[in-house]
């Protein structure tokens, strides 16, 4: 059985990143768009941990960065969901296509 190496993890994290970007750009539901952003952030976490473990094991920089990203992602999601709830109150929908008062 082969031990997973750096390239395997980088492949997964890059795939995850672009899945997130694709989801963010194509989905019309606000909650799904937020989930796509979480995918992007988690791919970054994988990247940091993989680089820290395989290439730069001396210092813990990558690990600390990951912890902070998780905390900030939670804060961001909290504000985003509060705004989405407020939008839902006024337009009864969380679909992006219904939020089109501001254009051009």
């Amino acid at each position: 059985m082969m031990e997973p190496g750096l390239y395997h993890i980088l492949f997964i994290s890059t795939a995850l990143f672009f899945t997130g970007v694709l989801g963010f750009l194509t989905r019309r539901n606000l909650i799904t768009m937020l989930m796509s952003i979480e995918l992007i952030l988690n791919s970054v976490n994988l990247n940091f941990i993989a680089f820290n473990k395989y290439i730069w094991p001396g210092r813990m920089d990558g690990l600390f960065f990951t912890l902070f990203i998780i905390a900030i992602a939670a804060a961001e999601a909290a504000v985003a969901i509060a705004i989405i709830i407020n939008l839902y109150r006024s337009s009864q929908s969380i679909d992006v296509n219904n939020a089109e008062d501001l254009k051009y």
Partner: peptide, 10 residues
């Protein structure tokens, strides 16, 4: 206002 904020945070 909510719509602008939503675009901003996303």
């Amino acid at each position: 206002s909510a719509e602008g904020a939503m675009k901003m945070i996303l």
